[in-house]
């Protein structure tokens, strides 16, 4: 019995490491798409955010460490992601260009630039940016001792996990309970109507894209820190997976959370199967296990997508002069 509890605690702790970056980035994508701008540049923005933040850690870790450093890195990641997403915003909003085009351009530029800058700036001229992980929290004081909830949420964790949950709450609040959220949703559904009510569609869409940039940049850092000891100019397709989670979650915060949890849990179970009772004895190889999260996602989608509908004006450039 105790064994089983241990396994479950372990799985949930691992799950957060997969789910939280997906959650943060997908919520970012949500802000952009609900404002009417498709953002397939999430992958590229993650790379830029992760690169800037990890490089920042790399340069400053001689002087400081621990949670203070991580929080500063979070700011760097969000800031650099927002800055980078400005490029997408300008093309998509001011120039009314095809949003897939500028998104693709950003995805292509990001890893190349990260490799290039890393090799230019680092003394050893390699593309990997190394860092020391001093950020793991083994047990949160007090909260970590709560039975059940303690091991599930407050042991072997990162401060970014709580940041992600905080962002979820904030995103749901902003989207549904504030004037800005209402305007954002209006611009994504029917920008002409929003404009006729005096909403500045361009400004709202800029805000949407910038928020998505900040969150995607942050998500890049959150993804890299627990899973690696250096940054190698890639986030392993997590930006595209976040896009999938966003659609899976039907552009709504709570559903995005559930989708991210589902996917993270699937991914955890199938990558940790060799340490799990029952599963490790099944005659199934690791490659087959690794396919399971993607297959189950497809199956779940098959049952839940009948009424799925993207924000109506998402991907359509807003032209004030058009009918």
């Amino acid at each position: 019995m105790n064994d089983w509890l241990g396994v479950i605690y372990f799985l949930v702790q691992q799950m957060w490491l997969f789910s939280i970056p997906l959650l943060i980035v997908a919520l970012g994508g949500m802000f952009s798409e609900r404002s009417g701008v498709v953002n397939i540049a999430l992958e590229g923005i993650m790379v830029v955010g992760a690169f800037c933040a990890i490089f920042f850690i790399n340069q400053t870790q001689a002087y400081m460490s621990g949670q203070g450093l991580l929080l500063l890195a979070v700011l760097v990641a969000a800031g650099s992601g927002a800055l980078f997403s400005l490029l997408h915003a300008y093309a998509a909003i001011n120039l009314r260009s095809d949003q897939t085009i500028s998104g693709t351009a950003l995805n292509m530029a990001a890893p190349a630039t990260a490799i290039y800058v890393a090799r230019m700036l680092q003394a050893n001229h390699v593309q990997q940016v190394a860092f020391t992980n001093t950020f793991r929290i083994f047990k949160v004081p007090l909260l970590g001792d709560i039975p059940v909830l303690g091991p599930l949420l407050f042991q072997n964790t990162y401060i970014t996990t709580f940041l992600g949950l905080l962002i979820l709450a904030g995103a749901a609040f902003v989207l549904y309970k504030t004037r800005f959220g209402l305007r954002l949703r209006a611009c994504g559904e029917h920008p002409q109507a929003a404009d006729s009510m005096g909403v500045n569609v361009y400004r709202v869409r800029y805000a949407g894209v910038l928020i998505s940039g900040a969150l995607a940049g942050l998500g890049g850092l959150v993804f890299v820190v627990p899973t690696s000891t250096d940054f190698n100019a890639t986030v392993a397709g997590y930006g595209f997976l976040a896009l999938a989670v966003l659609i899976f979650g039907q552009w709504r915060p709570l559903r995005i959370f559930l989708a991210a949890l589902f996917f993270g849990l699937m991914k955890t179970i199938t990558s940790a199967y060799s340490g799990l009772p029952v599963l490790k004895d099944l005659p199934i190889t690791s490659d087959v296990y690794k396919m399971i999260p993607y297959i189950t996602t497809l199956i779940v989608l098959a049952f839940t997508s009948k009424n799925s509908q993207a924000p109506r004006a998402s991907g359509v450039p807003y032209d004030r002069g058009s009918r």
Binding site: G237, F240, L241, L243, A244, I247, F248, K290, M291, Y294, I295, T297, L298, L301, A302, S305, K306, N307, S308, A310
Partner: peptide, 15 residues
Amino acid sequence: LNVHEVIACIMCNYI
């Protein structure tokens, strides 16, 4: 089934 082709394609890439 009205599943968005982007998400189905991404899943099929990994599968």
